[in-house]
């Protein structure tokens, strides 16, 4: 590479690097610093302390928050991708019906978060919700069910709403990947006597491995960052049964004005997410490698 080419290359990536430093590295550094500082209402009370992390360890709610966050992120991502893969596989089939569905399925995705949350909140309401009333009138339940008021149900109900909202794009991305699987490979597998499940397992999956990994990582990040849906629908209740990292960070920051603790939680959240993503990428590296050798 010529020296002038190298300068040009650096110049071309400079805006992106500057943006990343300004909007990712800067705030991350700021949060990491804040997590080691006692900050209340914007007033510093000493840097270089692990007090915020110790306060979290002593907080009885924090354990529940971690458990709920695991359900939210891991359960949400797993179900979102699994359902998305199933729906994407169906949508990949050429028919008039799937042609329409490919367009319609994006509806939940384009609705604003607040509208989605409010609509679901009312549909799931114990006294006036249409879902509970339908279940009751069809004899499936004795009375109406308060989906968002029952601490045993609420977290999973939120995950279901989350999947309804996030899955369509996952399905469409995977649908596109499945449709890009070479026909000759499918045909060869069919001629070799592979049934539908075997063709999916040994031909389709390896071919879409890269898209599947990418969509899983992206879903995990989307779900971790999702705040409006759980906050509007439950506010973290009842009795903290749906309190997750995103809502608890918000509460600590803007209700209690306790920025130090909120930052400490953000750091823990970041480390957890980075670890999960790194592990996932490490496990999946082989499938990409095999894809690259084709």
């Amino acid at each position: 590479m010529l020296k002038s080419d190298r300068f040009l290359a650096y110049a071309l990536i400079l805006p992106v690097v500057a943006a990343v430093v300004a909007f990712v590295v800067g705030p991350t550094y700021n949060v990491a610093t804040l997590s080691l500082t006692q900050v209340v209402m914007g007033m510093e009370r000493g840097f270089g302390t692990l007090g915020n992390f110790k306060a979290l360890a002593a907080d009885p709610v924090f354990g529940l928050v971690l458990k709920n966050t695991a359900i939210w992120i891991l359960g949400g991502t797993f179900l979102c991708v699994t359902v998305g893969l199933a729906v994407g596989t169906y949508l990949a089939i050429d028919s008039r019906m799937t042609g329409w569905l490919r367009a319609l399925i994006l509806l939940p995705w384009v609705l604003p978060d607040v509208v989605t949350a409010m609509a679901w909140k009312w549909m799931l309401h114990g006294q006036v919700g249409i879902i509970g009333q339908t279940l009751q009138s069809s004899g499936m339940t004795e009375g109406t069910v308060s989906f968002l008021g029952d601490p045993d149900l609420v977290m999973w109900v939120l995950v279901v709403v989350l999947i309804w909202r996030k899955m369509p794009l996952v399905a469409l991305i995977l649908c596109a990947a499945i449709r890009a699987v070479p026909d000759d490979q499918m045909e060869a597998a069919r001629m070799d006597g592979a049934n539908a499940v075997e063709r999916f397992r040994f031909v389709t999956l390896p071919n879409i491995a890269f898209s599947l990994t990418a969509v899983t990582v992206i879903s995990m990040i989307w779900i971790t960052a999702e705040f409006a849906l759980p906050w509007i629908m439950t506010g973290g209740g009842p009795a903290n049964a749906s309190q997750i990292m995103a809502t608890y960070i918000y509460q600590q920051s803007f209700e209690f004005f306790n920025w130090g603790v909120a930052s400490a939680m953000s750091v823990i959240n970041l480390v957890m997410l980075a670890s999960i993503v790194a592990l996932y990428l490490y496990v999946n590296r082989r499938s990409w490698a095999s894809e690259g050798q084709k």
């Binding site: 309401h125 008021g149 439950t234 209740g237 009842p238």
Partner: peptide, 22 residues
Amino acid sequence: PAATSLTETFFRDTAQLFGQGR
């Protein structure tokens, strides 16, 4: 109403349910 419903119904919704004779 059921206890689980009380924990999901905030003041404005409670007022509206009362206003509807519920």
